[in-house]
Protein backbone atom coordinates (compact mmCIF):
# COMPACT_ATOMS: atom_id res chain seq x y z
CA UNK A 1 0.00 0.00 0.00
CA UNK A 2 2.76 2.33 0.92
CA UNK A 3 4.16 2.11 -2.57
CA UNK A 4 1.12 4.01 -3.75
CA UNK A 5 1.63 6.94 -1.36
CA UNK A 6 2.18 10.23 -3.03
CA UNK A 7 5.80 11.11 -3.79
CA UNK A 8 5.23 14.16 -1.65
CA UNK A 9 5.44 11.95 1.45
CA UNK A 10 9.05 11.47 2.48
CA UNK A 11 8.81 9.58 5.73
CA UNK A 12 5.90 7.55 6.93
CA UNK A 13 6.02 6.04 10.39
CA UNK A 14 3.37 3.52 11.36
CA UNK A 15 2.82 2.32 14.90
CA UNK A 16 6.47 2.36 15.93
CA UNK A 17 7.39 0.49 19.12
CA UNK A 18 10.74 0.34 20.82
CA UNK A 19 11.65 -1.40 24.05
CA UNK A 20 14.91 -1.49 25.98
CA UNK A 21 14.49 -4.73 27.91
CA UNK A 22 11.59 -3.87 30.25
CA UNK A 23 11.48 -0.22 29.38
CA UNK A 24 8.82 0.60 26.80
CA UNK A 25 10.23 3.80 25.32
CA UNK A 26 8.16 4.26 22.15
CA UNK A 27 4.59 3.11 22.49
CA UNK A 28 3.23 3.27 18.99
CA UNK A 29 4.16 6.40 17.11
CA UNK A 30 2.59 7.17 13.76
CA UNK A 31 3.22 10.24 11.67
CA UNK A 32 4.27 11.40 8.23
CA UNK A 33 6.79 13.91 7.04
CA UNK A 34 6.37 15.53 3.62
CA UNK A 35 9.13 16.45 1.24
CA UNK A 36 10.80 19.73 2.21
CA UNK A 37 8.94 19.80 5.47
CA UNK A 38 10.74 20.83 8.63
CA UNK A 39 9.42 18.96 11.63
CA UNK A 40 10.43 19.84 15.16
CA UNK A 41 10.19 17.21 17.87
CA UNK A 42 9.71 18.41 21.44
CA UNK A 43 9.04 16.75 24.71
CA UNK A 44 10.32 16.32 28.22
CA UNK A 45 13.61 14.58 28.92
CA UNK A 46 13.36 10.83 28.60
CA UNK A 47 10.21 10.98 26.52
CA UNK A 48 11.91 9.09 23.69
CA UNK A 49 12.76 11.88 21.24
CA UNK A 50 16.29 10.68 20.58
CA UNK A 51 15.15 7.09 20.38
CA UNK A 52 12.50 8.04 17.83
CA UNK A 53 15.03 9.85 15.70
CA UNK A 54 17.55 7.05 15.93
CA UNK A 55 14.94 4.50 14.89
CA UNK A 56 14.38 6.48 11.69
CA UNK A 57 17.86 5.60 10.47
CA UNK A 58 18.03 2.34 12.34
CA UNK A 59 20.75 3.28 14.76
CA UNK A 60 18.21 1.62 17.03
CA UNK A 61 16.28 -1.36 15.71
CA UNK A 62 12.56 -0.81 16.38
CA UNK A 63 10.73 -3.75 17.92
CA UNK A 64 7.67 -3.39 15.74
CA UNK A 65 6.00 -1.01 13.34
CA UNK A 66 6.91 0.28 9.91
CA UNK A 67 9.04 3.07 8.60
CA UNK A 68 8.75 3.98 4.93
CA UNK A 69 11.19 6.34 3.33
CA UNK A 70 9.90 7.44 -0.07
CA UNK A 71 7.66 4.43 0.04
CA UNK A 72 10.43 1.91 0.72
CA UNK A 73 10.08 -0.12 3.89
CA UNK A 74 13.45 0.40 5.52
CA UNK A 75 12.87 -2.29 8.11
CA UNK A 76 12.80 -4.93 5.42
CA UNK A 77 15.69 -7.39 5.67
CA UNK A 78 16.39 -6.76 1.99
CA UNK A 79 17.57 -3.25 2.65
CA UNK A 80 21.26 -2.51 2.85
CA UNK A 81 21.19 -0.23 5.84
CA UNK A 82 24.51 1.43 5.00
CA UNK A 83 23.24 2.60 1.63
CA UNK A 84 20.03 3.69 3.24
CA UNK A 85 21.82 5.81 5.77
CA UNK A 86 23.57 7.75 3.04
CA UNK A 87 20.14 9.19 2.23
CA UNK A 88 19.76 10.49 5.75
CA UNK A 89 22.23 12.79 7.41
CA UNK A 90 22.41 12.91 11.16
CA UNK A 91 23.77 15.58 13.46
CA UNK A 92 24.38 14.72 17.10
CA UNK A 93 24.23 16.70 20.27
CA UNK A 94 27.89 15.95 20.98
CA UNK A 95 29.20 16.66 17.44
CA UNK A 96 31.09 13.34 17.25
CA UNK A 97 33.65 14.63 14.78
CA UNK A 98 36.47 12.15 14.24
CA UNK A 99 39.35 13.57 16.27
CA UNK A 100 42.09 11.93 14.21
CA UNK A 101 41.04 13.67 11.00
CA UNK A 102 41.01 17.29 9.91
CA UNK A 103 37.70 18.99 9.17
CA UNK A 104 37.99 18.45 5.44
CA UNK A 105 38.93 14.81 6.00
CA UNK A 106 35.91 14.41 8.21
CA UNK A 107 33.73 15.81 5.44
CA UNK A 108 35.39 13.80 2.67
CA UNK A 109 35.41 10.46 4.46
CA UNK A 110 31.94 9.13 3.70
CA UNK A 111 31.66 10.40 0.10
CA UNK A 112 34.96 8.74 -0.74
CA UNK A 113 34.48 5.45 1.01
CA UNK A 114 30.75 4.94 0.86
CA UNK A 115 29.81 6.75 -2.34
CA UNK A 116 33.22 5.88 -3.83
CA UNK A 117 33.65 9.23 -5.55
CA UNK A 118 37.16 10.38 -6.38
CA UNK A 119 39.33 12.21 -3.88
CA UNK A 120 39.34 15.39 -5.98
CA UNK A 121 35.62 15.45 -6.35
CA UNK A 122 35.15 14.77 -2.66
CA UNK A 123 37.56 17.55 -1.83
CA UNK A 124 35.77 20.01 -4.07
CA UNK A 125 32.43 19.08 -2.60
CA UNK A 126 33.83 19.23 0.91
CA UNK A 127 35.29 22.69 0.48
CA UNK A 128 32.01 23.97 -0.97
CA UNK A 129 30.15 22.64 2.02
CA UNK A 130 32.62 24.10 4.47
CA UNK A 131 32.16 27.41 2.67
CA UNK A 132 28.45 27.02 3.03
CA UNK A 133 28.75 26.66 6.79
CA UNK A 134 31.34 29.45 6.79
CA UNK A 135 34.35 27.38 7.78
CA UNK A 136 36.37 26.92 4.59
CA UNK A 137 39.33 28.60 6.29
CA UNK A 138 39.31 25.87 8.96
CA UNK A 139 39.47 23.02 6.48
CA UNK A 140 42.83 21.77 7.69
CA UNK A 141 42.24 22.30 11.40
CA UNK A 142 41.62 19.39 13.71
CA UNK A 143 38.29 19.29 15.57
CA UNK A 144 39.91 19.99 18.92
CA UNK A 145 41.15 23.32 17.56
CA UNK A 146 37.58 24.50 16.91
CA UNK A 147 34.95 25.96 19.15
CA UNK A 148 31.81 23.98 19.86
CA UNK A 149 29.72 25.95 17.39
CA UNK A 150 32.34 25.51 14.69
CA UNK A 151 32.56 21.80 15.38
CA UNK A 152 28.83 21.46 15.08
CA UNK A 153 28.83 23.32 11.76
CA UNK A 154 31.53 20.97 10.46
CA UNK A 155 29.37 18.07 11.61
CA UNK A 156 26.50 19.48 9.57
CA UNK A 157 28.77 19.84 6.55
CA UNK A 158 29.90 16.26 7.05
CA UNK A 159 26.32 15.03 7.02
CA UNK A 160 25.47 17.16 3.96
CA UNK A 161 28.43 15.79 2.04
CA UNK A 162 26.51 12.61 1.37
CA UNK A 163 23.85 14.71 -0.35
CA UNK A 164 21.16 13.25 1.85
CA UNK A 165 17.49 13.64 1.18
CA UNK A 166 16.65 14.03 4.82
CA UNK A 167 18.52 15.54 7.74
CA UNK A 168 18.05 14.52 11.36
CA UNK A 169 19.19 16.80 14.15
CA UNK A 170 19.28 15.55 17.74
CA UNK A 171 19.49 18.59 20.02
CA UNK A 172 22.26 20.10 17.89
CA UNK A 173 22.61 23.22 20.03
CA UNK A 174 22.11 21.97 23.55
CA UNK A 175 25.82 21.36 24.17
CA UNK A 176 26.72 24.86 22.98
CA UNK A 177 27.32 28.16 24.71
CA UNK A 178 24.54 30.66 24.03
CA UNK A 179 26.58 32.85 21.71
CA UNK A 180 27.38 29.89 19.46
CA UNK A 181 23.83 28.62 19.19
CA UNK A 182 22.96 31.35 16.67
CA UNK A 183 25.57 30.37 14.10
CA UNK A 184 24.43 26.76 14.07
CA UNK A 185 20.74 27.69 13.88
CA UNK A 186 21.52 30.04 10.98
CA UNK A 187 22.99 27.16 9.00
CA UNK A 188 19.96 25.06 9.81
CA UNK A 189 17.54 27.81 8.79
CA UNK A 190 19.34 28.18 5.48
CA UNK A 191 19.00 24.47 4.88
CA UNK A 192 15.31 24.64 5.71
CA UNK A 193 14.80 27.51 3.29
CA UNK A 194 16.55 25.56 0.58
CA UNK A 195 13.98 22.85 0.88
CA UNK A 196 15.73 20.15 2.86
CA UNK A 197 13.47 17.71 4.62
CA UNK A 198 14.41 17.97 8.27
CA UNK A 199 13.46 16.33 11.54
CA UNK A 200 14.84 18.35 14.41
CA UNK A 201 14.80 17.56 18.10
CA UNK A 202 15.19 20.97 19.65
CA UNK A 203 13.79 23.28 22.24
CA UNK A 204 14.91 26.49 20.51
CA UNK A 205 11.55 28.24 20.35
CA UNK A 206 12.75 31.04 18.10
CA UNK A 207 14.14 28.66 15.54
CA UNK A 208 11.07 26.44 15.63
CA UNK A 209 8.70 29.37 15.20
CA UNK A 210 10.72 30.67 12.27
CA UNK A 211 11.73 27.53 10.45
CA UNK A 212 9.50 24.63 11.46
CA UNK A 213 6.35 23.70 9.56
CA UNK A 214 5.10 21.35 12.21
CA UNK A 215 5.79 20.42 15.81
CA UNK A 216 5.49 16.92 17.25
CA UNK A 217 5.12 16.77 20.99
CA UNK A 218 6.21 13.49 22.57
CA UNK A 219 5.58 12.48 26.15
CA UNK A 220 6.12 9.08 27.71
CA UNK A 221 6.70 7.47 24.34
CA UNK A 222 3.46 8.69 22.85
CA UNK A 223 2.79 11.35 20.24
CA UNK A 224 0.64 13.57 22.42
CA UNK A 225 0.03 16.44 20.08
CA UNK A 226 1.07 17.74 16.70
CA UNK A 227 0.43 20.89 14.75
CA UNK A 228 1.96 24.09 13.45
CA UNK A 229 4.27 25.96 15.81
CA UNK A 230 1.61 28.66 16.31
CA UNK A 231 -1.04 26.14 17.24
CA UNK A 232 1.20 24.31 19.66
CA UNK A 233 2.82 27.31 21.27
CA UNK A 234 -0.18 29.61 21.45
CA UNK A 235 -2.97 27.15 21.96
CA UNK A 236 -1.76 23.81 23.31
CA UNK A 237 -4.57 21.30 23.76
CA UNK A 238 -3.06 18.61 25.92
CA UNK A 239 -2.25 19.05 29.59
CA UNK A 240 1.26 17.60 29.16
CA UNK A 241 2.02 20.08 26.41
CA UNK A 242 0.74 23.03 28.42
CA UNK A 243 2.73 21.93 31.42
CA UNK A 244 5.91 21.49 29.41
CA UNK A 245 5.59 24.78 27.54
CA UNK A 246 4.92 26.68 30.72
CA UNK A 247 8.20 25.38 32.04
CA UNK A 248 10.42 26.25 29.12
CA UNK A 249 8.85 29.54 28.11
Amino acid sequence: MSDQTSPEIMIEVVDLHKRFKDLHVLKGISTTVKRSEVVAVMGPSGSGKSTFLRCLNRLEEPNSGHIYIEGVDILSPYIDINKLRTEMGMVFQSFNLFPHMTCIQNVMLAPMHVRKISRDEAYERGIKLLEKVGLAHKADAYPEQLSGGQQQRVAIARALAMQPQIMFFDEPTSALDPEMIGEVLDVMSTLAREGMTMVVVSHEMGFIRKAADRVLFLADGLLVEEGSPEEIFNNPQHARTKDFLSKIL
Binding site: E70, K132, Q165
Partner: peptide, 13 residues
Amino acid sequence: TQATIPTRVPSRL
Protein backbone atom coordinates in the same frame (compact mmCIF):
# COMPACT_ATOMS: atom_id res chain seq x y z
CA THR B 1 27.87 31.59 -1.67
CA GLN B 2 26.80 30.32 -5.04
CA ALA B 3 27.84 26.79 -4.08
CA THR B 4 25.28 24.37 -5.42
CA ILE B 5 23.02 23.10 -2.75
CA PRO B 6 23.28 19.41 -2.18
CA THR B 7 19.55 19.02 -1.63
CA ARG B 8 18.77 19.97 -5.19
CA VAL B 9 20.01 16.69 -6.66
CA PRO B 10 17.32 14.69 -8.47
CA SER B 11 15.40 12.35 -6.27
CA ARG B 12 17.10 9.04 -5.89
CA LEU B 13 13.84 7.25 -5.35
